[in-house]
């Protein structure tokens, strides 16, 4: 077998797929391979898609991908679903909405479980973006879990973050108030044919207006009807506009620095946790400390301090 990193760089789908598996599994081979891929990254444009459940994110992403394909670009899609905290398993069902593009060689879709990561992302998603980038995907789209909570971590990885809402029911506006306002580079109200569209649009506009008065940037709002392909061209234009602004203002570099910093912290965090809780040396220590806490011989803070002083020495 020729070298896996080489094959990823050539864009070989099976190598890309295997490489993603290696990073997801925290395989021992992954770090060295990733270092080699990293040198070839930096070209892909990363788009994050978040928003409430049932907003039609997967369908919207499919239509976006098709639009980019018509412009001759290649696309990588990461669709994230929650991992069950009880079994560690996951049902990854976002693909159902994307099957019509599944045989297009220019589109690569990968479903991932969160595997314990909070904030609507998966721990390996940073690596997956790098892998897609190194493999020559020009557009990378990330779909967050979308359980309706604020999934704000997406901005640490995406160049452009879209928040997708649907008319009616008020869930959408609640979600905005709960923290999605600040992260949106673009608001999309999908399913624009639904009753209540005008009302949701009006509510959102007034929220954006408040934001502008508070001295922040005016976030554009677009209506789409992904099922009927409505508003997709305009959305692509808007994404392009945002991206161009990032480039011309130099903010893209800040974005990228933020991504690398988050990733760096994440890697260190993961390694430290593994070191403390998974490796045999410390495992016994942790057990004996827990015993002490249980018997009230020691408080949890003191116990934590003892572990840290060992790690840090």
């Amino acid at each position: 077998m020729t070298d896996l990193a080489e094959r990823v760089l050539e864009g070989d789908p099976r190598a890309i797929a295997r490489m993603i598996t290696l990073v997801e599994n925290n395989s021992d081979e992954a770090p060295e391979l990733m270092s080699r891929l990293h040198k070839k990254t930096g070209r892909a444009q990363v788009i994050g898609v978040t928003g409430v459940m049932g907003a039609g994110k997967s369908t919207l992403i499919t239509e976006l991908a098709l639009e980019y394909r018509r412009a001759g670009k290649t696309v990588g899609i990461v669709a994230i679903d929650p991992t069950s905290p009880f079994s560690g398993g996951a049902l990854l069902g976002d693909r159902i909405r994307m099957m019509e593009v599944s045989t297009d060689p220019g589109i690569f879709i990968r479903s991932m479980g969160t595997r314990g990561m909070l904030g609507g992302l998966s721990g390996a998603v940073f690596d997956v973006v790098e892998i897609f980038d190194a493999a020559g995907k020009e557009i990378v789209i990330i779909e967050t879990v979308g359980v309706g909570q604020a999934e704000v971590d997406i901005i640490k990885i995406a160049d452009t973050t879209m928040v997708v809402l649907v008319p009616g029911l008020g869930d959408s506006i609640q979600a905005i108030k709960a923290g999605l306002m600040e992260i949106a580079d673009i608001f999309v109200i999908n399913k624009s044919d639904r009753p209540g569209f005008d009302l949701t649009m009006a509510e959102l506009e007034s929220l954006v207006e408040l934001n502008v008065q508070a001295g922040r940037k005016r976030t554009p709002i677009l209506g789409t009807n992904a099922k009927e392909r409505g508003g997709i061209k305009e959305l692509v234009e808007e994404i392009k506009k945002h991206y161009n602004e990032l480039v011309s203002s130099g903010k893209l570099d800040d974005h990228r620095r933020m991504r690398y910093e988050t990733e760096l912290v994440e890697i260190v965090r993961k390694r430290l946790m593994n070191l403390i809780f998974d490796e045999a040396v410390f495992k016994d220590k942790v057990d004996s400390l827990v015993n002490k806490i249980e018997k009230k011989e020691m408080g949890p803070y003191a116990a934590a301090q003892e572990i840290l002083s060992r790690v840090l020495k």
């Binding site: 049932g54 997967s58 369908t59 049902l91 069902g93 976002d94 159902i96 909405r97 099922k227 009927e228």
Partner: peptide, 9 residues
């Protein structure tokens, strides 16, 4: 057009 179903388990 054709109908596509939502993913429900």
């Amino acid at each position: 057009g054709e109908y596509k179903e939502p993913a429900i388990f």
